[in-house]
Amino acid sequence: MIPEKRLRDFTTGVFKAIGCPDADAQLAADVLLAADLRGVDSHGVARLSGYVRLWESGRLNSTPHIRVVHETPTTATVDGDGGLGLVTAPFAMDIAIEKARQYGSGWVAIRNSNHFGIAGYHALKAVEQEMIGYALTNASPLVAPTFSTERLLGTNPICYAFPAGNYPPVVVDMATSAAANGKLEIAERAGKSIPEGWVLDAKGHPTIDATAVKKGGALLPLGSDRDHGSHKGFGLSAIVDILSGVLSGANYGPWVPPFVAYLQPVVNQPGQGIGHFVGAMRVDGFRPAADFKANMDQWIARFKQAKRVDEQQPVIIPGEPEYEAELDRRKNGIPLVEAVQKNLEALASKLGIGQL
């Protein structure tokens, strides 16, 4: 177990080493640590080497001039200037929250950005202000649409976060693919197979090989196949791609710049960088916030009392496992698998910073 502060200081040091200003380095570290604390290990410090790789290849601007390029009272488009999505997305969410504070809701599209970490971090910023938060992003093309074997979409996560009263927020934070790519990476590092229904191999056949996508295969949409509703996952992913990429002026579909090392950027891209879309809605724009939160508590309590298939397995409220993981990890430290720890040690040596 690694204490949170030690891991936070190390992560901040990595971002400083690639030229990020202190405030940006601290914010980027905060976003990554939020993932590790919430048990989303695929999107925490395990991603650090990916950001460094982008910087080394000239695809990441460590000192961006992030700016609003289009605006109305309730909407805006932000250009991230090739910077960290870990910094650009919070910048945009702050704008969405301020617009919501003034006008009831705020919606911001982001272009020319990079991987923004867990969507939940950004959506929860709105919850802190008694608002409903919304965050999504497009991503490296690794997912084949229904009836195809061609990688045209990202895992394209979507997140809604709702404040409650006595209970933790309800946070629906999920990939629109059958599994997030990070889940494959976790399985690969552990030398484990993956469930059938996540991936197709290079010939379009189902496989349990965690490395299949690296070998030319593709992730499947949520639902896995048409008989089990993959067209719905494809539809959700399309919404994310259109709002994040087409609406903002970022790249979309197969033109999204890859974050993973085994994909090469395509030429003649129609947009700029990766795209995100964030939003905030004031609860009291619809009804008194206290009344809403009281009903949210009732909603949560009733679902937790649902009749069980297995008495040992209660119904899990969206966001509940992550909340419980955070309570535990803040107290007891953050576990790192050996492969990630070795990767971080190599990163420290490369950048000339202190070891973890």
Rank of each mutant, 00 (worst) to 15 (best):
N181I: 10
T155D: 01
R287K: 14
V14Q: 05
L219P: 04
G106R: 10
G245T: 09
G235A: 10
S57I: 03
R329Y: 00
R47N: 12
N332Q: 10
D22Q: 13
I334C: 03
A250H: 04
P270Y: 03
A119Y: 00
K304T: 11
E320V: 03
G216Q: 08
R38N: 13
A135E: 05
L153A: 07
I132N: 00
Q341N: 09
Q298L: 15
A212Q: 07
A325W: 05
D36H: 01
N295R: 15
P288R: 11
S237R: 10
F15R: 01
Q313K: 14
V52L: 06
K183G: 02
P288A: 10
V199N: 03
A46W: 00
G352P: 05
A280L: 03
P258K: 12
L243Q: 12
D41K: 07
P221E: 08
Y121D: 04
S237P: 13
V260A: 08
N181E: 12
I95S: 06
A190Q: 13
V340K: 07
S244A: 15
L37W: 00
A46R: 10
F15T: 02
R329T: 07
E311S: 15
F277M: 14
L351V: 12
R59T: 10
A294Q: 14
Q26L: 06
D24G: 02
I274Y: 01
I132K: 01
R38V: 04
P90M: 13
V309A: 14
Y103N: 14
V108H: 06
N156H: 02
F303K: 08
T146V: 07
F292Q: 13
A96Q: 11
K350L: 10
A346G: 07
W55E: 12
M1L: 09
G204V: 06
G19D: 06
P314V: 02
D22H: 06
A100S: 12
G106W: 06
L136M: 15
P265R: 13
A34S: 13
E71C: 12
L247C: 14
V278G: 06
R329E: 11
R38H: 09
V87P: 08
P314Q: 12
Y134V: 13
A135L: 03
F15W: 02
A179V: 07
I2Q: 13
A348V: 06
D328T: 13
Q102L: 15
T211W: 00
Q312G: 14
P73D: 15
K342W: 00
R59Q: 14
V266K: 15
I242R: 11
A348K: 05
G120V: 04
A202P: 02
N166D: 13
P270L: 09
M281N: 04
